[in-house]
């Protein structure tokens, strides 16, 4: 079913973005707590978003 493909893809995209942000943001948060810095969280979140969007492109964006 064509419509269900799209619904599936949308939930997967949401899952990838969420887990990318949670994992790398979590790593950044841990580094912040450990090294007493303030910028690793932001770096981690941006890295996670970037990686997740790259993953979405790999899975759904290329022909």
């Amino acid at each position: 079913m064509a419509m269900k493909d799209e619904g599936n893809a949308l939930w997967s995209i949401f899952g990838y973005l969420l887990s990318g942000m949670l994992f790398w943001g979590g790593v950044g948060y841990g580094l912040d707590k450990w090294l007493n810095q303030g910028y690793f969280l932001l770096v981690g979140l941006l890295l996670g978003i970037g990686a997740a969007i790259y993953l979405v492109w790999l899975r759904f964006g290329r022909e």
Partner: peptide, 27 residues
Amino acid sequence: MPGVPKPVYILLTPIELATFFLVRPLT
């Protein structure tokens, strides 16, 4: 994921694992 240069897996593999084993049942 096929078709990715090797070093990028460090970035992508944790996300894939987190998606399948944590985020899917949680969401």
